[in-house]
Amino acid sequence: MRLAAIDWAMLETATAIGHAPVAACELISYHGEASVPEVPGMVDLGLRGAPNYELLQLIRPDLILTSPFYVQHEARLRSVAPVLSLEFYVPGAPPFAKAMQAMADLAAATGDPDAGARAQAETMVQLDGLAARLAPFADRPVSLIDIGDARHLRAFGFDSMFGDVLGRLGLQNAWTDRTQFSFRAPLPIERLAETPEARIVIAGEIPVEALDGLRRSILWQALPAVRDGRIYVLPNVNAFGGIPSALRFANLLAEAFETGPITI
């Protein structure tokens, strides 16, 4: 079955159940940002916000994968091929279960329901293994953030994929306040002082101009987590991805915790 993916979470989900799409949107930045290996022969369909319909038509897909985020394109996509639109991210709702369900739904739609069940089971096995590895680190909550500039950050809440995975790994998310669409942003860095006992995990590379600012920032250096060396940095992971991104995040987190904190 020839699949074409508009949404990245759907692209990941299809890849996870072993039915890699023949075409997907914005592959250049997908490979760059999500750091996933390139799939040879996969056709780039252009921007997610403006997919190239002519190319899509040439590909002749049997099923187009998208999400309600691109709802304005749905009618148009339907004129090319049947559309499967699944929702992953809704403000206020944890996404992990939805992403798991998406694997089953997609597998059913491609006529290979076993693939979905297999992928789900495998995910749970991996997650359990990672949870065991991370058990020694359950003593402190985790402040999961992303650095904007030297003075601002955004915090990942319970309704983000990373926040949700954190809970499933047996860790506690330090950010319990409300969120907007997975994140809470922008927050001044002093908000980190509200949970002095937490480990700070920076998901994604720190912008170069922020790094220098943080080094000089007296407030940053005075944060308990910084003073006592509880800072961890992860490489870029797609924050609005499917199960593969969730697992990648969990793996990177385990690696980072085991490697030990870094200093900024």
Partner: peptide, 25 residues
């Protein structure tokens, strides 16, 4: 910004104009 697909936090903050400070520099 759109073509990047990812919403660039540092730029969004900058666009809004924020007076938050952490030192005297």
């Amino acid at each position: 910004t759109l073509a990047r697909g990812e919403y660039l936090l540092s730029l969004v903050i900058w666009n809004g104009g924020s007076l938050v400070q952490q030192d005297w520099s």
